[in-house]
Amino acid sequence: MLDNITLGQYLPGNSFLHRMDPRAKILLTVVMIVAVFTANTWIGYAGLFLFIGGTALLSRINLKFIIKGVKPIFYIILLTFFINLFFNSGETVLVEWGVVRITKEGLVNATFMALRLLLLVFCTQLLTLTTSPIALTDGLERLLKPLSKIGFPSHELAMMMSIALRFIPTLMEETDKIMKAQMARGADFESGNLINRAKAMLPLLVPLFVSAFRRADELAMAMEARCYRGGDNRTRMKVLKFTKVDAIAAAAVLAMTAFAIIF
């Protein structure tokens, strides 16, 4: 059951998207998100869909993975769609049935909203599927660096993020193991009402917390043993460098954004 989570999973590869500088990817993803939310016409969305679809094809990632990432938030998209559909004060009424009143503007708005969320997920999926968590936090750290002048702990934040990301699979594995061990002792995680189910989680959560704390302690000890002292004057094995690929991608994204805003 824990195998199904693709959100935030990295798939190694060697496409141009994989080779891009993580900083460029993060910034361009933000720009794309702005474009996705400012677009307001069918042509704009068609263009964005083609652009993101094309990028996905170029990344040579199996499209199944990108689509699978939508699954966890599918109901949120559906909910947003219906809320926008029903609570919209448009002029042209399409259907009126009791309190339910669907207008043309409402339908268009709701569709745009759903498309936005969908494109948002696709964009961020492309980022996380083609960027290793380490590169991602590295990029983020560099981008936030200027803020450290006003006391923002950019290195610490990035370190915390990469540690957290690093331990997600470990904790999932651990959860799976403890779950199986308790199931072997007859524990039942799947049936019963809400209260019983919450109670049934106890034999899972207590050992999980105990081991998470133990791990954190061990990791802190190991880091200190290697004289870890935060980010000052640290050099990197992989120095981030903007290349021609990043410039081309930036030009393309900016053109796309301009297109989405103008149309």
Binding site: I178, K180, A181, Q182, A184, G186, A187, P203, V206, P207
Partner: peptide, 27 residues
């Protein structure tokens, strides 16, 4: 599971109850 008892590797990581007796009573 009543017939087949399975003790996992490092089974001590599955302990969770307040007392030893309660933990053994869980199964």
């Amino acid at each position: 599971r009543k017939k087949v008892g399975l003790v996992f590797q490092y089974p001590e990581y599955q302990l969770f109850e307040e007392t030893i007796l309660k933990d053994v009573m869980f199964g």
